[in-house]
Computed example of a mutant assay.
Amino acid sequence: MAYWLMKSEPEEFSIDALKKVKSEPWTGVRNYQARNFMWQDMRPGDGVLFYHSNCPVPGVAGLAEVVGEAQPDPTQFVPDSDYFDPKSDPDAPRWWLRHVAFTRKFKRVVSLDQLRAEAETLGDFALLRRGNRLSILPVSDAQWAHILKLAADD
């Protein structure tokens, strides 16, 4: 089992929206490294830290789980989609997705500021690296455990 952090803007799709629909295809990823994580590295059963970004209090809002195998992202083929890619071919798709399922919402967001304050304990946490803007990031076992502990401290 591996662990991941997946970012979403809560105005677009929040942990509450995932809770409501139970499972959702993670579409619209248009960065090759993030795409490769979904396409080649993620596996059903992997844990996901659901991260709210670009909002007043960015941070980890809850947990999800990767469900199902990688599939071509259909938005790449829809001309009026924000994620349309005219160079992508249905016979050789360029962009992939994974479905994620809701696990639980935290009582409070584990904020980016709180994660930064824990930088020494979190070690080389990709989210805290300068200039890292990837929407999907790997999370180590130790980082996962520590963030769950932070979420439980109330």
Rank of each mutant, 00 (worst) to 15 (best):
Met1Lys: 08
Ala2Ile: 03
Trp4Phe: 10
Leu5Pro: 09
Lys7His: 09
Glu9Gly: 03
Phe13Ser: 02
Ala17Gly: 09
Lys20His: 09
Lys22Ile: 01
Trp26Tyr: 12
Gly28Tyr: 00
Val29His: 12
Asn31Thr: 08
Asn31Met: 08
Tyr32Ala: 13
Tyr32Asn: 15
Ala34Gly: 11
Ala34Asn: 06
Met38Asp: 02
Gln40Cys: 10
Pro44Ala: 02
Gly45Val: 01
Asn54Ala: 02
Pro58Cys: 15
Pro58Leu: 14
Pro58Gln: 15
Gly59Phe: 07
Ala61Tyr: 05
Ala64Gly: 12
Glu65Ser: 13
Glu69Phe: 12
Ala70Arg: 11
Pro72Gln: 02
Pro74Val: 05
Thr75Trp: 12
Gln76Trp: 02
Phe77Leu: 04
Phe77Pro: 13
Phe77Cys: 15
Asp85Gly: 09
Pro86Val: 15
Ser88Ala: 13
Pro90Ala: 13
Ala92Trp: 04
Pro93Leu: 02
Val100Met: 15
Arg104His: 10
Lys105Arg: 14
Lys105Glu: 11
Phe106Asn: 05
Arg108Tyr: 02
Leu112Ser: 01
Leu112Asp: 04
Ala117Trp: 00
Glu120Val: 14
Glu120Asp: 12
Gly123Glu: 02
Asp124Val: 07
Ala126Met: 11
Leu127Arg: 14
Leu128Ser: 13
Leu128Ala: 15
Gly131His: 08
Arg133Gly: 08
Ser140Leu: 13
Ser140Glu: 10
Ser140Asn: 13
Asp141Ser: 07
Ala142Arg: 07
Gln143Asp: 13
Trp144Thr: 11
Ala145Gly: 06
Lys149Val: 09
Lys149Trp: 11
Ala151Leu: 12
Asp153Val: 02
